[in-house]
Structures are given as structure tokens and as C-alpha cells.
Nucleic acid binder design. Structure first.
Lengths: 334, 334
DNA sequence: TTGTAGGCGTTATCAG
DNA sequence: CTGATAACGCCTACAA
């Protein structure tokens, strides 16, 4: 059914190789005449080259895989958008897969994508498939790790300074007079969450504020509501809170609304993540914002370099977050 | 460098076809013995089948393309997520491309993806490449149109009842006593925007409220701020407003904040789109919500059926939106 | 039950 | 400048 090079060749009265030459723009040694003939034949027939066949021959598919932790984070969407833009500018396609932070899914996707011969992979790693990561790196397969670090893995990766950024945010709360500060994150299965919690603790320590176990919640989204309930039922509830990401923020909002806790007035709030409406909601919310676009760009560059066999340092590229102070931390506490 | 079937065959002491049999699970006519040998060889060598070669032979890549209008809409992200889930459950991959509502980009992506031999395409059409859509449909290439209708095109598509849903929202505003209602959309290049505006006008007409040109703004995002400025500088400014999608909503919020217009009190607001924080912000916002997940599912099913050569009606599947009434339209006007 | 041969649509090499 | 011819890695008759 589909038209192939052979059809074009026949119609133009030349050989397949000539058509191939034409398609690959190697006109140098081609007569004006045959060039026109081939061009006409292609147009007449509506011929479209078959990229699969080309890929088989060239061992290059011009496709990359992106395995994202959870696409429902605004940050992930932004990074994907940035990656996709970059690759498309370079005539490549991105296959985006959503691993849902599930190591099994991640493994399956990595295998699927490699079977499809993608030229490289950008992974938001769950951190659990260490052997698999290692084997890819060892064989020199192009990989860039994104957002998270993996213990024991040395690879080109693009991350942010989670610990320092959280420290800075907590210090901001402390400057506002807060002493009873809580942190809420998802389960501590992923490096970013650990680092953010660490930054929280380090900031308290440096300021000689005691660390209270009950102020640190790390649990899955669906039990976060009841944990927050517990937190604010304490005899001495916190006056400020750090939300570990945007989904946590949503739970906090939900809880605050239900419990009639006034954010910004009764409760200082900092959110670690990008939120499109952060400065527009009421009260506007103080956020730690990650440079998603630059990060996507950097990761894409790192991957493309590897694909093009350029040398790439297997090192972390660390981006800095920005603290946007807004109304949710406006009130000073004594 | 990569291990091929030939390597496995040699190692197992059998022929390539036997290995192929094994891989395709045609064990029936295979001795237990060779089966074990092949299995061992595959494991020893860490053989991974090459999907590109298989695709070339089978004329099926198990990949589909998704060309989305603008991924930065929450709704688009949700649909993509749903599509991606479905296809991955069916052992297929989705290539997501962001056309930015640009017909040229759209055309380029369609051609790129077809060259890559994707088994089918889900398109949020810009509506401008009519001939291209037609040629795909005529040749029976699997296509599902999503979100928007295209004049003159009969194709399987998945849309919502934009006109009726907007009418209902405007009626709600009228019930609240509003008579001076404005609508703000992006430029009227896309069917959804037209239909929403039409619904707005129809609702006014049915309620004998005059249609005022100055109350209808349709412009690109970047000049929306100044248009809103004009709107609210009118001698008789509106008391309520319909935002045509989530990005418009953002502009409205921005403007309201800057102008100190109190949404919900001074200005009734309905947003046509899915917004994650709609019920949590202050004031919570009345939205017309689209069933993104079901729509994704439906579109994916329609595409997969076509890919599997099942008959599919080239008709619109119309989903209903839901109006969630919240605080931004709480106040009654006289 | 297993092997041989040919083909899928390109590209690459090398004569002519 | 152009055309055979042989890959690329897998699948599928058909033969043995």
C-alpha cells in the first residue's frame, strides 16, 4: 500500500540509490536533470520516506525516552515541555512515560524504550533499579538522571540544591519569629524528599531550635489529611509549615480550609515547588521555585551530547532554587 | 555491539527461526530441550529483541502520536496522562508533541510522526490543515480528533458540549442577578472558543439581555491585560465574567489583583476549564469542568479499534461538562 | 520439530 | 554521476 523508494526509482527511471542520494541531499554529484526527475516522481507519488527502515540501517531512531516520576506535578510538566521543545528543535521526538514513582513500572519502561532503540534516556529515577542504571552507564548508553540522585551511581544528572533551599526557607520562617515549624513530605523513598527534610533539620539545628519528631510528617498523600489532623491536635501545634511539594500543598490547603485555619495569619506556609497561581491566590503563597525550564534544557543538552558521542562529565549539575516570599509568610510571630 | 538473534542462535546451537519462535511464544512444536537451551542463551547474553527490525517487518510500531494544542493547559495534561496510561496498558507508547496551536508546527509533527510509522494519531487540531486531515482519513489511516471540531471534516472525534455548558454557566450568573456579563477568550481561531462564545451569546439572547460588543474580548494572552483594563474602564463595567480557559483565568486573576477588584464580591467569575486548586483557593472558583480522563480513555479506545481494523463510526463523541458552583459566584446582584 | 531462504525499506560501498 | 549489491535484525513460508 505504501509507496517505497523502489516505486519512486522506477517512475523516475533511475535506481534506488539515486533516490536515496537525493533524499539525503547529496546533490553534489547529481545532474540537474535526474534531480528534477526524482523530485517530480516523489511529488507525483506522494512518497514519504520510511523512518523505521532508515533507523534499522543507521542504528539511530532520533527518538529519546523520558521516564518521569509523576507527571501530575507541575514541575514535571514544565520540565517535559522544555525537553520536548529542545528535542523537537533538533529533529528528535520524545516519548514520555509516567512511572508513577513505581520501580516496577520504571524498569518496564526502561526495557520497553531500549527495545524500541531510543537513542537515549532521561530518567527521574525511583532510585530502586540500581543495577539497571549501572548496566546502562557501564555500556556507555546515553542517560541523564533528572531531579533525583541515586546512591552509588555516578552519572550525568541535573538536580537542585534541595537541602540548601529548604534551609533558606526555614530560616526565613525563623526570621519571622516562628519556632514551632513543621514539615510535611511524601514518603521518604526519594532523594529530594530526604534532602528537603535534612535541610529543614539542619536549619533548626543551626538556630538552636529543638527538633520535634511530631512536627515531621512523611507519608503518602492519601493519609496526609489524618496526619495533619494529628499534627494540629497536638498540645503545642506548629505555627508554620513547609510543604514538601505541590501535591502536599494541596492537601495542606484542603485541611486548612476544612479546619478554618487561616494561612498567612494563623499559619505560616512555604511550599517547595512551582505553582502556577502562587502569586495570584489569596493569600499568595511563598514558594521555593525550581528553574524547570533551564533544567530541562541542560538535561537535553547533556543527553544530546552523549548521543553525538561527545564527552560528558558524569557529574551532577546543581541548579539553585529561588525563594519567593509572599503573603503566606507575611505575619510575624513572637 | 548489540546482541542479535543470530548470536543467540549460535550460542544455543539452533537456527534463528527457532529463536524467533521462542520469542513469539510459539512453543507448541518445540522440544522442551531446545526451549531451555534458547532460554539459557538469551539470559547468558542478555539479549534484547530489536523492536525496530520487528516493526519494519510487521509494519506496526506499537507507537502512537499525540499532537496536543498546548500542553500548558491543565486539561491537556490530564488528557495526555489518561491517554498515556491506556496505551501503556496495551503495550504501546505515546509520543507527545506540542503544536502550540500553530498550524505549521502541527503539519510538521504529523509528517514527522507518520514518517516514523506510528500506528495512529490523536490530534487536538488547529483546524487549519484541512487537506492533510482529509488525506489521512481518506486513506483509512487511524486518526482521532480531540477537543476541537474541524469544519468539513467527518472523523471520529471526542469533544465536549462547549456551547451548552457555557450557556448553563451564564444562566447561573443570570440567576444570581447579573445582567452585565463579559466573556474573555483567546483569539477565535479554534472551535472551542467560538462555541463557548456562542453559548454565551445564546444564553443572553434567551434571557433577553442585550449583547454588548465591548463585553466580549477575544485576544491573545499577552494583550489580555490591557483589554481587561479597557473593559473595566467602561462607563458601565461588567459585574460578572466568563473566562474562556485556565490561561485566561490567570490573566483575569492577575488583573483583579492589580486593580483590587474583589472576585466573588465585586465580580462574579466562572472559568471554563479544569483547575486543580479551584475549590481550595480563596475565594474558591466556579468552574466548568471537562471529564478529561474519560475523554482520554474514549479517544484511546477509538484509536486502538481503528488500529486493530475494527469498524469505528466517524462521529463526534460528545461529553458533558460539569458546572461546579463555588464562592466566586456566590454573591447575588440586584 | 527445526532449518533455509527471502523479504521488509533503507543506506553504504564500490564498480562502472 | 549512477547503479548493483550487500547489509541492518527480524519474521515467515516452506522445505527437510
Amino acid at each position: 500500500m505504501a509507496i517505497t523508494m523502489a516505486d519512486v526509482a522506477k517512475r523516475a527511471g533511475v535506481s534506488k540509490s539515486t533516490v536515496s542520494q537525493y533524499l539525503n541531499k547529496r546533490y553534489e554529484y547529481m545532474s540537474q536533470e535526474t534531480r528534477v526527475k526524482v523530485e517530480a516522481a516523489i511529488n507525483d507519488l506522494g512518497y514519504q520516506p520510511n523512518h523505521v527502515a532508515r533507523s534499522l540501517k543507521q542504528k539511530r531512531t532520533s527518538m529519546v525516552g523520558i521516564i518521569v516520576g509523576n507527571i501530575m506535578h507541575r514541575y514535571s510538566t514544565e520540565v517535559c515541555r522544555s525537553l520536548e521543545d529542545y528535542f523537537n528543535e533538533h529533529e528528535m521526538n520524545a516519548i514520555i512515560c509516567n512511572a508513577d514513582n513505581d520501580p516496577e513500572k520504571e524498569r518496564k519502561y526502561i526495557e520497553m524504550l531500549r527495545a524500541k532503540q531510543v537513542d537515549g534516556l532521561i530518567i527521574f529515577p525511583t532510585g530502586q533499579n540500581v543495577e539497571l542504571y549501572k548496566s546502562m552507564l557501564k555500556t556507555g548508553y546515553p542517560v541523564v538522571l533528572m531531579d533525583r540522585k541515586v546512591k552509588g551511581i555516578i552519572a550525568p544528572s541535573v538536580v537542585v540544591n534541595n537541602r540548601e533551599a529548604t534551609m533558606r526557607a526555614v530560616e526565613h520562617l525563623i526570621e519571622k519569629g516562628h519556632k514551632k515549624i513543621a514539615i510535611v513530605t511524601e514518603s521518604l523513598t526519594i532523594s529530594t524528599r530526604l534532602e528537603r527534610k535534612q535541610g529543614y533539620m539542619d536549619a533548626l539545628k543551626e538556630n538552636n531550635i529543638p527538633i520535634i519528631e511530631e512536627y515531621m510528617i512523611s507519608t503518602e498523600i492519601k493519609s496526609m489529611g489524618s496526619e495533619l489532623d494529628n499534627l494540629f491536635s497536638l498540645q503545642d501545634p506548629p505555627t508554620a509549615l513547609v510543604a514538601g511539594n505541590d501535591l502536599v500543598f494541596l492537601e495542606v490547603l484542603k485541611f486548612a480550609k476544612a479546619s478554618r485555619i487561616k494561612i498567612g495569619e494563623q499559619l505560616g506556609l512555604v511550599v517547595f515547588d512551582n505553582i502556577p497561581f502562587a502569586d495570584l491566590v489569596n493569600p499568595s503563597v511563598t514558594t521555593i521555585s525550581q528553574p524547570s525550564q533551564e533544567m530541562g534544557l541542560k538535561a537535553a543538552e547533556l543527553l544530546l551530547k552523549q548521543i553525538n558521542k561527545e564527552e560528558v562529565n558524569p557529574k551532577d549539575t546543581v541548579f539553585s532554587c529561588e525563594l519567593f516570599i509572599r503573603e503566606s509568610t507575611k505575619t510575624s510571630f513572637e
